[in-house]
Design a protein around this nucleic acid. Sequence first.
DNA 1: CCCCTGTACATATCGTACATACACAGTATA
DNA 2: TATACTGTGTATGTACGATATGTACAGGGG
Lengths: 125, 125
Amino acid sequence: MKNIVVRNTIQTPIYQQIYDQISSQIMNGDLEADQMLPSIRTAAKELRVSVITIKKTWELLEEQGLIYTVQGKGSYVRGYTKDDLDELKLEKIKDSLKAVIESLKSYNVSKEKMIEIISSIYDAL
Amino acid sequence: MKNIVVRNTIQTPIYQQIYDQISSQIMNGDLEADQMLPSIRTAAKELRVSVITIKKTWELLEEQGLIYTVQGKGSYVRGYTKDDLDELKLEKIKDSLKAVIESLKSYNVSKEKMIEIISSIYDAL
DNA sequence: CCCCTGTACATATCGTACATACACAGTATA
DNA sequence: TATACTGTGTATGTACGATATGTACAGGGG
């Protein structure tokens, strides 16, 4: 439960922000298999949000097969191999990029132009 | 008012979908300067949505400086040079890509990997 | 005056988020 | 062994804002 940041200033839902960060930590291997996540109460207190919000996040993570939950005990990270995690991560990134490319479809951006812009954004970081 | 498609199956708000398509048509030069947009009633009937929804779209377009509206008369495409339009378009695309890169920040994707994935998505189209 | 235009109002539905009460699991202890 | 305690997840009821609607109001021009 380290390095989670919640911003109220952006339009992304809180549960989505937390989901993104935890799912990336799992996919990056920062959280070990069968490691217990904080209880929803602990996480809620720590991040200063409602237990409902954390519950929704945990549900999302469970839906995506990243964790499993035992009633009365807690939620735990699913056991995946490094290769599996890399694959999941790649799919996630692909999905995001596909979505943005789809949303820009009507602007008729060529592959080369797109790469050029991506490159310039990275260089500016 | 050609080639506008509204989908109820996706989560993007209707007014946003219409906005994206009209703004891209303007930026691509498909709509001429001072050309009148359809009245909000006509557009609403044609796209089978409420006048309020179209009004919101027109307001967004006006906010972004793409059209101007005259009470009782109608809404018209602003006069921009081709260079201005290209610049607006580039900014729009940059903003979208910046947002997706920001949202993927925690996955630690390198510039090269990102370009590789973008490339593969384009090749698959 | 009539018919076109944009505008404003009141309302319905849904997603997000909250506090609080309920139910299950494990353990200490009488 | 029974039961109370304290941890866990779950469900209920509420509030608010965004999205979308229909319908009534207001301005421009023949």
